[in-house]
Design a protein around this nucleic acid. Structure first.
Lengths: 103, 103
DNA sequence: CTCTCATATTTACAATTATCTATATTATAC
DNA sequence: GTATAATATAGATAATTGTAAATATGAGAG
């Protein structure tokens, strides 16, 4: 992953509604109709946010019957974590470098 | 780390100039005057970006003589990685969950 | 004290983005 | 075919944010 792709994902996640959507999806797949109930926004606004999350690759969508299901693209998420974590820590700042687990 | 703090950091990093600043700082501490040479922006704009990066906690600054040095706050970075990585991957998306190393 | 250097702040403006209403699409049910 | 349901797109507007010019601050040097 390069800086350009990374920025696109960070831009997508760096917004109040969209980070909440991300949090909701962390426990698994959800359909749009269930998710939108939790937010005080209109359906087109929700759809707009989902498009941004999908366009950057961090979320994937799949159609089933007449519903659209969304889930986190864990491969892409791990690419992002690897990119961000690839940081040399200087002397006066200790780096813990913890393992990131999906429990 | 909660969603609010996370969003603030993601907002800070999700901008073209600031992700480049982040990349520059990954190899260690740098002073403002050296960094600004690499960018085609004015000094006030650079200062504005550094303020956003410092306010969210992902970058720390220290004054030495008349120069200001910036470096990545690795503790905060690891908090962010832990937060983002705390994701349950569903059945049809395999989770690699690689260890993030600072080499 | 004044001068210079490095950086920060203020103000204003331009570009981007989040949001809405209205409409379109796509699929199913009748 | 029409009607309904779930989601997407288009267009308009309001809010946010990136940028630069001008100015301020703070710390040596003389």
């Amino acid at each position: 992953m390069d800086a350009l792709e990374c920025t696109k994902i960070l831009k997508a996640l760096g917004e109040d509604t969209r980070i909440q959507i991300f949090e909701m999806l962390r426990n698994g797949k959800l359909c749009a109709c269930k998710m939108i109930e939790k937010f005080d926004i209109t359906q087109p606004t929700f759809s707009h946010h989902m498009k941004i999350l999908c366009d950057c690759g961090i979320v994937v969508s799949e159609k089933d019957w007449k519903w659209t299901y969304y889930s986190i693209n864990c491969d892409k998420l791990n690419e992002l974590l690897t990119y961000l974590g690839h940081t040399k820590c200087n002397s006066n700042l200790t780096c813990e470098c913890k393992k990131n687990n999906c429990d």
